[in-house]
Design a protein around this nucleic acid. Structure first.
Lengths: 326, 326
DNA sequence: CTGAAAGCGCTTACAG
DNA sequence: CTGAAAGCGCTTACAG
């Protein structure tokens, strides 16, 4: 966008636009108003608006031990392409933060977890392409994303428990309507159904995706008259809460209770017993999303606009055959 | 003063000066040197080389669960000042990465852990101020830094153990010559000396600051004829290794062995028993370092050029009086 | 490696 | 008031 563009659109000459921009006299009020309106509309700034080699990485919440994996995966890809990664926590929600971001003229935006319609519109208007990593909610079809095969992960976890002989399997799912959580729960149901096992509704409990959430939910499950022999959680953090509830109830893992987590956080390998869990290749997902964002940033078409990377089951020592046949 | 003046004075053409200014190739070393000398002499700058509202956050190694705390602390301060945070892992070691960083014209650099003399020189030459967060090695006096009171932390941890009645206290320190590790060890010695306790050299063991390092070192300590009744480690990760070694040796924590960690990672609160450890206020340190970097970036003088923030002892359940009086 | 020439976006001086 | 023309400092593409 140059003053030549503005001039053409306003139907005046380049010098006239120049005068308006510099507050010079010698321009009719009418012409001045028309030109100013166009300058405003296009957000014209004399500095060349060429975008910088910057990839914006926007977190909804910058916390947890998985964020580093994401950052690292993105940073390595960006460095290879000689891009800088700007990290922000509420980059798009706060108006000034959004302004600041636009000021940086990034080539693409990589959002983690969520990206509202308003935010997407803002970016579309400026012509800044975006990719959503690990979407927390359903998105319109045209939103490019990279996720994990959560449904298959849930299925794998529960099939593993069924294969060990478990029948009374409880699931601690997320409370909110998040899409990965729903997919994991659906995987649970699917595996149960495939094995012709009925699901006791009392064994499906919603809880926050935290250690406290898992602790509360598991305490309830383990206090019931007839306990589950295994619990599948929607996150390793919840599984840590289950460990605590089991300790408090005097139950040993895996002898009295099998536990399967989800995410494969480092902590899972350190606890006693080491946690069986569903691995999500977060660093690889982040790298793929970054590549996708940079491709879009170059104005090219990526091979695909959506991608789910495979989850795998990491079997450690928190799962074993149930004590009795129940 | 235009490049035409420089060109005339240097006896070269305008395009040649332009190339030198923009670091393009196709200029002989001799010509380049002559032009650069004149540019320097006249203090020529093309369009105002105004730096961007960017703070570079440079990690030596972007890993571990503490990195997020640092990033978050820095991001929040930067956002308040309407600065963007660019994260990089080897920002300064790789030549191209350094070029890319200079291209971004950041106002300041915040390095985590280390910053070599060559890197400092590069930044000084470009007039980009820097701050070192959590320095891993001794630095010249003029390097602005933010650290933690590691020496006091070590002292506190060991005083706590002595207060519980421990006499045979082992320490697992870092293998390398890192400055915080040395300070923690010195704190140990200082506390022992203040209590008139002799230090058995066999109870001072170097190990990597990892779970594996702690495991190996602790296995050795616990296999000795006369075991320590308490182990102070230089990191929570090492403490996790001590937990494992204790399990393998059939020792209970804290009944048979007290353990104190260092760092206060989240995992410490989740393990069984929850870990007594020395807390380092990393997020606060990061925020303070960011403020300092931004002050320097504005060309102002910060109140102080070095800062150590207080460590505190977080007492949980991994420490108790020793079994016998040994 | 070097620089004449063309071109960039913008401003200025001036004819209408 | 308006805009064709000349000019500004700088960069780029390219011939030598």
């Amino acid at each position: 966008m140059t003053i030549a563009h503005i001039a053409q659109e306003a139907g005046v000459s380049v010098p006239t636009v120049s005068k308006v921009l510099n507050g010079r006299s010698g321009v009719s009020d009418q012409t001045r108003a028309r030109v100013e309106e166009l300058i405003e509309r296009h957000g014209y700034r004399k500095a060349p608006p060429k975008s910088n080699n910057i990839l914006e990485l926007v977190f909804h919440e910058l916390a947890g031990m998985q964020a580093v994996d994401v950052i690292r995966g993105v940073e390595q890809v960006a460095r290879k392409h000689r891009f800088g990664v700007v990290i922000s926590e509420s980059g798009l929600r706060e108006a000034t933060a959004l302004d600041d971001m636009l000021e940086r003229r990034p080539r693409a935006v990589l959002a983690v977890g969520r990206l509202s319609e308003a935010e997407r519109d803002q970016l579309k208007t400026r012509g800044i392409p975006f990719v959503l990593l690990d979407p927390a909610a359903e998105q319109p079809d045209e939103v490019p994303f990279v996720g994990a095969t959560d449904w298959r992960g849930g299925q794998m976890a529960v099939r593993h428990l069924i294969g060990l002989g478990h029948r009374r399997i409880a699931v601690i799912t997320s409370q909110t309507d998040d899409s990965p959580g729903r997919a994991r729960l659906a995987g649970f149901h699917s595996a149960m159904q495939a094995a012709d096992l009925a699901v006791d509704p009392a064994l499906v409990v919603g809880a926050a995706l935290t250690r406290e959430g898992g602790h509360g939910a598991a305490a309830g499950l383990l206090a019931a008259a007839v306990r589950p022999s295994a619990i599948f959680t929607s996150s390793d953090l919840q599984a840590m809460g289950v460990y605590r509830a089991a300790r408090e109830a005097g139950l040993r893992i895996p002898e009295d209770l099998s536990v399967v987590g989800f995410d494969d956080l480092p902590v899972g390998a350190w606890v006693d017993p080491p946690l069986t869990t569903v691995h999500r290749p977060l660093a690889e997902m982040a790298a793929a999303a970054a590549e996708m964002a940079l491709i879009l940033g170059r104005g090219e078409e990526p091979g695909q606009l959506g991608l789910e990377m495979a989850t795998t089951l990491t079997v450690r020592d928190s799962t074993a055959p149930p004590r009795t046949g129940n």
